[in-house]
């Protein structure tokens, strides 16, 4: 078959990872001052930034305040220079709108929305560089930003994608792996309760394989959680120290 050999017979992927390995993760909380919460994450070459504003009063004509819960407003956008080929519209196209909606749904399911009736929380995510797993990076960054903003959630939301090649599930697929036309499953999960907040699949996958692919994706989510949790703890202890000093 034409196309790239995504998984070598020796068990290495094109970038040198083994099937179950995540890409290199770098993340930071509280990167910006203006926003109430912010975070930056790098998963391999995918780089995402999230800022959170709120909760604040409901502004603008769009939504009416809800009497029993907070409005979550998400906006996903991609920098024009984030992709291999220049993007003309950073947001507002169908893909971005879909992503915004996915994010909104994900966080409506996890933020303790009943705590802030009649108000609004804005979550903005910006992809600075895209190399596959954009949604995952956004969810992870947004989770950290929400934590940074001090907004209570039921649990972390961690997201991870997985693909399926040569009867082997691959974790955290890169753009190159995504674009070969194979199935890609994206899962956003609450790692402690193992509940799935969002599940998305592109291309066809036979139902017999779903279980293993799903398992790999949720394993990825849990690995992600470990990294994120460590970063949050580190951030908090640093904050505590600086407070003591002052």
């Amino acid at each position: 078959m034409a196309g790239l050999e995504l998984l070598s017979d020796e068990g290495f992927r094109l970038d040198g990872r083994r099937p179950s390995e995540l890409r290199k993760i770098r993340l930071r909380l509280g990167v910006f001052d203006q926003a109430d919460g912010s975070a930056y994450i790098e998963q391999g070459n995918t780089k995402a930034l999230a800022t959170v504003y709120g909760p604040h009063e409901v502004l603008g004509g769009k939504g009416k305040p809800l009497h029993d819960k907070v409005i979550i407003n998400c906006q996903y956008s991609m920098a024009t220079f984030s992709t291999n080929e220049r993007k003309n519209r950073p947001q507002g196209d169908r893909k971005s709108t879909e992503m915004s909606l996915h994010l909104q749904r994900t966080f409506e399911a996890t933020i303790q929305t009943h705590l802030y009736p009649r108000s609004q929380i804005d979550i903005f995510v910006q992809i600075l560089q895209a190399d596959g797993g954009n949604y995952c990076a956004c969810v992870n960054a947004a989770t950290l930003a929400i934590i940074n903003a001090g907004i209570p959630m039921k649990d972390y939301v961690c997201a991870c994608s997985s693909g399926y090649v040569n009867n082997t599930p691959l974790t955290d697929v890169s753009y190159l792996e995504e674009s070969q036309g194979g199935p890609v499953v994206t899962v956003a999960m609450l790692p402690k309760s193992e509940q799935i907040a969002l599940f998305k699949m592109d291309n066809r996958l036979h139902v017999d394989h779903l279980e293993q692919v799903l398992e790999v994706a949720s394993k990825g989510c849990k690995d992600m959680y470990a990294v994120m949790n460590a970063a949050v703890k580190e951030h908090v202890s640093r904050m505590a120290k600086s407070m003591e000093c002052s």
């Binding site: 970038d15 040198g16 890409r23 290199k24 291999n84 080929e85 190399d131 890169s174």
Partner: peptide, 9 residues
């Protein structure tokens, strides 16, 4: 013009 970037571990 495309600029393709790939990771290499």
């Amino acid at each position: 013009v495309m600029k393709v970037v790939r990771e290499h571990y």
